[in-house]
């Protein structure tokens, strides 16, 4: 961001809270690696020394949903697994984003069969779809950058009503 250069000049910057929050959010997206099948291996490959997801501030793969704000669904989601994916999604704190990695999660992919959900957008709101079977690690990084772009456009007040909404749901 060139922050250092600015700070040495005058010692201060002016910006909006929205911008700084969005900037902080986007540069430290913590993914929840929902590795289900083959795509998970490529997701790990994205974290390995060659592709190095750490360059984007997302190397902190947490296996607990409570500490994450991005869910990467990597792999074929079956009906049985859909319940689990959904429950984990519900456990993530707001605001949260979802990447549907691979053909399977986007549309069922090559599995037109009785037990495969034909696209996870039937039960989850998806932000970025990634094409490929499996998508190459570069493609996943691209998806991550798209998410970052999306996050950088958010304003803090976009998420204001989420908590009351949630409370209402719980009360119901």
């Amino acid at each position: 961001m060139g922050l250092e250069a600015k700070l040495t000049q005058d010692g201060f910057i002016t910006t909006t809270i929205d911008a700084i929050v969005a900037w902080a959010r986007k540069s430290s997206v913590w993914p929840m690696p929902m590795g289900i099948s083959c795509c998970a291996i490529e997701m790990i490959a994205a974290a390995d020394p060659k592709y190095d997801i750490a360059r984007f501030g997302s190397e902190v793969m947490r296996f607990t949903p409570r500490q994450c704000d991005l869910m990467i669904v990597a792999g074929t989601v079956t009906y049985k697994m859909a319940q689990v994916v959904r429950r984990i999604y519900d456990q993530m704190p707001d605001p949260k984003w979802v990447i549907a990695m691979g053909a399977c999660t986007s549309s069922g992919g090559m599995y037109r069969s009785y037990n495969v959900v034909q696209g996870i957008d039937q039960f989850l709101p998806v932000d970025v779809y990634t094409a490929g079977c499996p998508p190459r690690p570069e493609n996943l990084l691209n998806a991550l950058m798209t998410i970052q772009e999306k996050i950088s456009k958010t304003r803090a007040r976009d998420f204001q009503d989420i908590i009351p909404q949630k409370l209402e749901l719980i009360n119901k």
């Binding site: 792999g75 074929t76 079956t78 049985k80 697994m81 069969s113 009785y114 037990n115 495969v116």
Partner: peptide, 11 residues
């Protein structure tokens, strides 16, 4: 098991 049962044999 069965969380990744994709129905290969049927397909």
């Amino acid at each position: 098991l069965g969380y990744l049962h994709r129905g290969y044999e049927k397909m």
